[in-house]
Simulated scan of single mutants.
Amino acid sequence: MYRLIKPVFFQFDPEKVHHFVVKRLNWFHAHFPFGKTILRSSFDVQIKGLEREVFGIKFKNPVGLAAGFDKNGEYIEALSDLGFGFIEVGTVTPLPQPGNDLPRMFRLPKDQALINRMGFNNKGVDTLAERLRLLKVKNKEIVIGGNIGKNKLTPNEDAVSDYVKCFERLFDVVDYFVVNVSSPNTPGLRELQEKEPLTDLLKTLQGLNHKNGISRPILLKIAPDLTDEQLNDIVDIVIESKIAGVIATNTTVDKSTLTSPAELAAEQGGLSGKPLTQRSTEVIRYLSKRSGKAFPIIGVGGIHSAQDAKDKLEAGASLIQVYTGFVYEGPEIVKNICKALV
């Protein structure tokens, strides 16, 4: 079905289509007679062999939805009906912000890729926290990750305070945290991946990570464009700060392999999809070997098939996430991956 609809969707602006689709999915889940049952029977795979426990959390399957798809946590229940083992919301910032100017998302069908320069557009952490609080009252079974960042106008020297605000506000309503310092679409953000500021940020959050005897797993999301030396630093920082693990990887700024028309490939922003498949897997394998499998890795980047997912798990990932593959392959991608893993 999706293969028949996709050519129509691809005739329109990607961001507008995104909002159109998720709003109607949400309506179908909430208001169509037996909508939730239809979605779950069509897409959700309940197989015990897929269950796994990672950083102290039980996942019904290892296939998650990456951050950016549901920034404000508005569609979690409907998306969960599609079979995801966990859903990551955000990136969220302390204050609401509109993000970068439109247009800011571009399809590259020839490369099965996306370029985005969204710029952390979101409604702010207070709105997200309240929405997640209500959701957790209704449904405690959905595993939710909170991806946190800094506001565009916050200088890097004050960035820690933005992450702390998001961390404290979401602590009671998410199952794990992701520290996003690797998006290429917020000016200067990737400078926070350097060893000194990153160590300071993660140690500060870990110092707060005990509330009434409870702690949340904290993961670091890194860019695929890091050198081996920088990846070595990441391993050292993760072990030293004692955070739970790493998400590898975010989007890339390397567009050297693209075959799409030059004017499209030249659009500013982070590249995701098939051109990232190999590099993200290489980063996973490097981190896993370098650390001696000292911490879990969530693998993301260019997963468009069950084989792509298997490659990342075999490289050392404990869990995986999809985004661009979800856009290109449709909602059956979760079921297809899960069946193949069994």
Rank of each mutant, 00 (worst) to 15 (best):
M1Q: 06
M1I: 05
Y2L: 01
R3L: 14
R3P: 06
P7A: 14
F9A: 12
P14A: 09
H18G: 07
H19S: 10
H19Y: 13
H19G: 02
N26Q: 11
F34P: 04
T37M: 10
L39T: 07
R40P: 05
V45I: 14
I47H: 14
L50I: 04
L50Q: 04
G56T: 02
G56D: 01
G68Q: 06
G68A: 07
D70M: 11
E74K: 07
E77Y: 10
A78I: 08
L82R: 03
I87M: 00
E88D: 15
E88S: 09
T91P: 00
T93C: 06
G99W: 00
R104H: 13
R107N: 03
P109F: 01
D111F: 00
D111C: 05
I115S: 02
F120K: 01
T127S: 15
E130F: 01
K138V: 11
E141K: 11
N147C: 15
G149I: 04
G149C: 06
L153H: 10
L153M: 03
N156L: 15
D158N: 15
V160E: 10
D162Q: 12
L170Q: 10
V174Q: 01
V178C: 14
S182H: 11
N185F: 13
N185V: 14
R190K: 13
R190N: 09
Q193V: 06
E196M: 11
T199N: 10
L202F: 12
L202P: 00
K211E: 11
K211I: 13
S215F: 00
S215K: 04
R216S: 00
L220M: 12
L220T: 05
A223N: 05
A223F: 02
D225S: 08
D225Q: 08
D225C: 10
D228R: 14
N232E: 15
I239W: 02
E240H: 15
K242N: 15
G245N: 00
I247L: 09
D254P: 03
K255C: 05
T259K: 09
T259I: 06
S260W: 04
S260K: 02
E267R: 12
Q268G: 07
G269F: 06
P275F: 01
T281P: 02
Y286D: 04
K289W: 01
K293P: 00
K293V: 01
I303H: 10
A306F: 06
K310A: 05
K312P: 03
E314A: 08
A317K: 04
Y323H: 08
Y328I: 10
P331L: 02
E332C: 01
E332L: 04
I337C: 08
C338G: 09
K339N: 14
L341S: 04
L341D: 03
V342G: 05
